[in-house]
Design a protein around this nucleic acid. Structure first.
Lengths: 340, 340
DNA sequence: CTGAAAGCGCTTACAG
DNA sequence: CTGAAAGCGCTTACAG
């Protein structure tokens, strides 16, 4: 049986309210000596406040609920989420917020069941890269649950924290063009991802804008995996005129391309240039290091957490924030190889 | 104002208990028609059960508290924790347990303050690779909090789930010896890590057992980082007779060695063999792929979660489990290079 | 069969 | 200044 305030009160022959005030301060003044005595007794009796009971009364839990992209197997292995989650944890710790990962909700109804995420155990929700199909965010506003969104689309209302995909993709394409590339392919992420959609559509737009050559399978959606990068590379290399450069929608895709290119004996960057997106701290040794577009994930994640905590505290909706991407040139891109 | 059972009861002119039974089953039979009516009303009124209140009564939260290695910055970036955490999340989801990451506790007192982890919001605790200095686990037993330990030492009482370090290190050293290596160095993890201590002491023991040559700085503790692997390699290469093979305490250290070796122009495995530990899914493209000792982290993490849930349900302490390691041979190890 | 009530462990306005 | 009491939203033994 855990010790309760009542136990301490009985032990000292004082009231529960006095014990409560003595332990937690508050509006009532307690004589120093009594307060000390209460505290000592609490320690001696192994008293641990019941946060359930406290939260039930105060309505505050100091806990943030986190909703990962799609809770299917192995999301937490992705470099993106690893980076984002690490930063979420660090920031939550600074702000003394615990983190509740809501796994036990009914995933069968997935996106529709935002209701299941509304939980009295949390003060607010952080959505990390929610699927673009996840619509009913209005419901959260209706239920008065503060929330912020990371890497989410304009179709989801609410405070957004994301990278400037448009500008980032421009960086990638212009880098390749500066190296003389014109025959450029894009291996994109899934069309359920806002970032993937934005990156592909910006790429497609730039192809038109710069009047780059068009070819079969030049720009496609697919899973965010190395396997997808590998498979797409194989297909692209079957073309009569394969691309001289590939812009991958994230680093995992790019690493897949690099790995398979190595196996196929396609030298990078001599015969093929590869650029990724994220720079989410993948491990790479040996050459070539991956040229990529860095998205400031740690900053974005920290901001999403901090803004959520502000939102909860002030009840006023924080402002959106879109941070610029930066180009990180390593060894996987080089001058275009021109077929003789 | 969220809807409560009382609101529904008032709406339908029935009692709160009837509403509760109608929504959640339980011991009382409710006529089908009434039950339907209650459910419809609940949906219409946006009823969401308050889990705080429910848990306060039932004493169950269906939530597991997770305590990561040391909550300083960036633990979640480590390959080990990424792998373990991913598996913890997957298993928790299967068992319909939510996960509470306790960050807001008082970290200043760190290991001593296990008390702060005892939280009415969780049914049990999972410690992931706790520091060997974290002693007061007895306290948890005293407070009757079920817990399991992953990658923890024998000094911590409680149900352990870990790899057989002794056997794993033997695998590594024997692999190197079979390739003709005798001058072998070990770059170890921190002496606050049980795994690191075990690996180093087993290595030291094998050096004696096989009568391998001794040399300065042959076997040392250090952080679990790539930087440490790099720095140690540089030192080892300054020796008059540098080792021909390095056994790193984890993959991060090994990757550091590999990366720096590449920069220093030391060809692997021609001039130097490198073997790691964990095989925790680091990304590597290009050659050489890292030969390593695989520890079944996903299985261990899943077991630690499942056993904790059993522990909570049955109140009987689960059995320890030590799983064997396996050798994964890739390209970073080869025949010993003998100075002419 | 169903309602009224106790109680989980707190916080905090309300009495005295 | 401090105690008694209400109330947070549930579950469930207890009455009727």
């Amino acid at each position: 049986m855990p010790t309760t305030l009542k136990d301490i009160a009985r032990e000292l022959n004082i009231s529960v309210s006095t014990v409560s005030y003595a332990l937690h301060g508050g509006t009532r003044k307690i004589p120093d000596q009594l307060r000390e005595q209460v505290r000592e007794t609490a320690v001696r009796m192994n008293y641990r406040p019941n946060r359930l009971a406290r939260s039930l009364v105060t309505g505050r839990t100091n806990t943030i609920g986190v909703v990962p992209p799609v809770l299917d197997d192995d999301v937490f292995l992705s470099p993106y989420l690893r980076m984002a989650w690490n930063s979420i944890v660090n920031e939550a710790e600074k702000l003394r917020q615990d983190l509740l990962l809501l796994t036990a909700s009914d995933r069968t109804r997935a996106a529709d069941s935002i209701d299941d995420l509304v939980d009295s155990r949390i003060d607010g929700l952080l959505f990390v890269a929610p699927s673009v199909e996840a619509k009913p965010f209005e419901r959260l506003t209706e239920l008065q649950v503060p929330y912020t969104l990371m890497s989410a689309g304009g179709n989801a209302p609410g405070p957004h924290f994301g990278v400037d995909n448009n500008q980032g993709v421009r960086l990638a394409v212009q880098h390749l063009m500066a190296l003389g590339h014109r025959r450029i392919a894009h291996i994109g992420g899934p069309d359920s991802s806002y970032d993937a959609i934005m990156r592909k559509s910006t790429f497609d737009q730039l192809v038109r804008e710069y009047d780059l050559p068009l070819f079969d399978g030049q720009s496609q959606h697919g899973p965010w995996t190395r396997e997808s990068g590998e498979a797409r590379l194989v297909e692209l290399m079957k073309l009569a005129h394969p691309p001289t450069a590939i812009f991958a929608g994230n680093d995992d895709l790019a690493i897949g391309v690099l790995g398979r290119a190595f196996e196929m004996g396609i030298r990078v960057p001599d015969k093929l240039s590869v650029i990724g997106f994220d720079d989410a701290g993948f491990l790479a040794y040996g050459l070539p290091g991956l040229t990529t577009v860095r998205q400031p994930l740690p900053e974005l994640a920290a901001l999403a957490v901090r803004s959520l905590v502000d939102f909860i505290a002030t009840q006023s909706v924080p402002a959106d924030l879109e941070l610029p991407a930066t180009l990180v040139v390593r060894e996987s891109t080089g001058p275009a190889y021109l077929t003789p």
